[in-house]
Design a protein around this nucleic acid. Structure first.
Length: 570
RNA sequence: CGGGGCGUAGCGCAGCCUGGUAGCGCAUCGGUUUUGGGAACCGAGGGUCGGAGGUUCGAAUCCUCUCGCCCCGACCA
């Protein structure tokens, strides 16, 4: 492809709105342009990369036995009403009305549509298992789109849905997808990790997210430094940290703690560890207060708390808490309150806790569950942090990384098949609700994630599998007949071998071409012309760490073909 | 939605406070000289100053409303 015949509007300067490397570089390399908040046009350079990701995804999905289909982007409200999500899915769902006043939406996901298809067309267990997938544009009206295509409102997603006759089959479908995803991300040349994840509004029994490891990632992922345990912070647990042998339960005692408001203050004042204290927090569930109890040295995780409590959970500020409960915010405690209690799991172990006395300036020591107040309900409410023990193995410590979620696999169970009535007859002629799984990959997000992981000062460094071109063929002087002849012959040889070649035939100074080559991140560049051509050679240079090496034009082709086929970037 | 910031040429910005009819760098087009890591010079094109209303003899500049974009938070497969 000729540079002069292609729209590759590279930018020298950094666009102000771009704050992360991938966004900045995608704009500078002329891959995308923004049309509106979170909505982008893909230009030739960007689209080529997108197509490569799609191709890998398609090959692996097909190899895993999934069937490609293409569902509508625009969906009738009825289906969503049937599943109950029309009311549950917030403003993120882009709703519209057609000319006949029919409520409609732009699909953010396709459980309803695919389940509708299957309930109509699949009637027998003999047709199962089946896995349908599509690569398609989704729209989610995100509150705050950011980081370019990393978190756009309109984006490209591969979504797949498996249907099985029973749980065992569904587990197997899930396992196959898990392995397929691992292969896909490996082929994309990404450093990633699969982690246990929260199921969020999609629902279902269990799920794993696939995260590309990058500083700019929006998620925190926790993993064990010894075993295979890894989880999103939203889901991560820690092993029980070592506590001193529970001494005998001491008597409950009211102690004065004047002007001691924070946990640290109180612990220090009373000469106990923060981990021996209990902090009390009020949240609202469906507008009603609930008192949450956490160990003094632990931090509430709002997503976990919301999941644990159920209902609509909000986190009121101090004034609202005082208003709702009438309790003194600095000295709240679980004793003698009328509000429902939910305690973090970590409070199961140990005793003789220090709690607020519900009276300004007073705390209570020696508090024990069951004796001094009814045993509360225990749930996982807190954030774990790096350095805590692993919940699975005894030796490991937890570590923390940032990740970009590029894939998510769910065991859905019968949530949608039940609601929409997807049933098949089993071998005994009995009706059976299908068991579903769903599996997403953020195709456009992978492009950004790959750049986050592979760039330097000068620009992008494409992994061989995703690069828009394999070779940047730079003509030092595109008007020179000999240069043209050599370059065209080389281009023909490379393309003939299946390589993609960008011929930089612009009438620009060499420096400009080099700077753009760095920016575009094409793995190999070949310089044709000038003094090297006079001495009968062309110069080959890798995007990273390579000197310019002279090759006879008839040797250059086979060298490059070999390098590219071996997937070597450099 | 709450808090903050910004809208002036394709990109990055100045001008606004203190009103007098728009400028700089890069990019673009033409020319000359150049040509091995973002060339130099000469010339040219390109702006409803986000939009609407108001104040004023006069508004990019002051006032009101509005739209868009960005950042922080809440939200999120």
């Amino acid at each position: 492809m000729r540079f002069t015949k292609t729209l590759i509007p590279t930018l020298k300067e950094n666009p102000v709105e771009a704050h992360v490397a991938s966004h900045r570089l995608m704009l500078r390399a002329g891959m995308v342009r923004q049309l509106a908040a979170g909505i982008y046009t893909w230009l030739p350079m960007g689209l080529r990369v997108l197509r490569r990701v799609e191709a890998i995804v398609r090959e692996e999905m097909d190899a895993a036995g999934a069937q490609e289909i293409l569902m509508p982007a625009v969906q009738p409200a009825e289906l969503w009403q049937e599943s109950g999500r029309w009311d549950l899915y917030g403003r993120e769902l882009l709703r519209m009305v057609d000319r006949h006043d029919r409520p409609t939406c732009f699909g953010p996901t396709h459980e309803e549509v695919v389940t509708d298809l299957v309930r109509r067309e699949v009637k027998s267990y003999r047709q199962l298992p089946a896995n349908f997938y599509q690569i398609q544009t989704k729209f989610r009206d995100e509150i705050r789109p950011r980081f370019g295509v990393m978190r756009g409102r309109e984006f490209i997603m591969k979504d797949a849905y498996s249907f099985d006759v029973d749980d065992a089959g569904a587990d197997e479908s899930y396992r196959v997808m898990f392995e397929t995803y691992t292969r896909i991300f490996e082929r994309c040349g990404l450093r990633f990790r699969a982690v246990e994840a929260d199921t969020g509004s999609i629902g279902g029994a269990s799920s794993h997210e696939f995260h590309v490891l990058a500083e700019s990632g929006e998620d925190t992922i926790i993993s064990c430094d010894r075993c295979a345990y890894a989880a999103n912070l939203e889901k991560a647990r820690a092993g029980t940290s070592h506590l001193p042998e529970a001494s005998e339960a001491s008597a409950m005692e009211r102690v004065e703690t004047p002007n001691q408001r924070t946990i640290e203050d109180v612990a220090k004042f009373l000469g106990v560890a923060a981990s021996s204290t209990v902090k009390s927090l009020v949240v609202a569930r469906d507008g009603e207060p609930v008192l949450l109890l956490l160990r003094g040295d632990h931090v509430l995780h709002e997503v976990k708390a919301a999941a644990a409590l159920g209902g609509q959970v909000t986190f009121p500020g101090p004034e609202q808490v005082a208003e709702m409960t009438g309790l003194p915010v600095g000295s709240m405690g679980p004793i003698g309150v009328e509000i429902p209690l939910v305690a973090d799991e970590a409070l199961r172990h140990g005793g003789n806790w220090v709690c607020g006395a519900n009276e300004e300036g007073w705390h209570i020591t020696g508090v024990n569950w069951g004796r001094d107040l009814p045993e509360p309900e225990f749930k996982d409410l807190r954030s774990v942090s790096a350095g805590e023990p692993c919940p699975h193995c005894t030796e490991g410590k937890l570590t923390e990384d940032r990740g970009i979620e590029v894939g998510h696999v769910f065991k859905l169970g019968t949530k949608y098949s039940e609601a929409l009535g997807s049933k098949v007859l089993n071998e005994n002629g009995r009706e059976q609700v299908t068991v579903m799984g769903c599996y997403g990959i953020g195709v456009s997000r992978i492009v950004a994630a790959a750049i986050e992981q592979n760039h330097d000062e000068g620009g992008i460094i494409w992994p061989m599998a995703l690069t828009p071109f394999h070779v940047d063929l730079m003509l030092l002087n595109p008007k020179d007949a000999q240069t043209q002849e050599v370059a065209e012959a080389l281009e023909k040889e490379l393309t003939g071998a299946g390589l993609e070649v960008l011929m930089d035939d612009r009438d620009e100074r060499l420096g400009v071409k080099f700077k753009d080559a760095d920016l575009l991140g094409i793995p190999f560049r070949v310089l044709v012309g000038g003094r090297s051509l006079k001495s009968g050679v062309v110069e080959i240079q890798a995007r990273v760490g390579g000197d310019k090496l002279p090759y006879a034009p008839d040797k250059a082709g086979s060298y490059l073909i070999d390098k590219v086929r071996n997937g070597a970037v450099g």
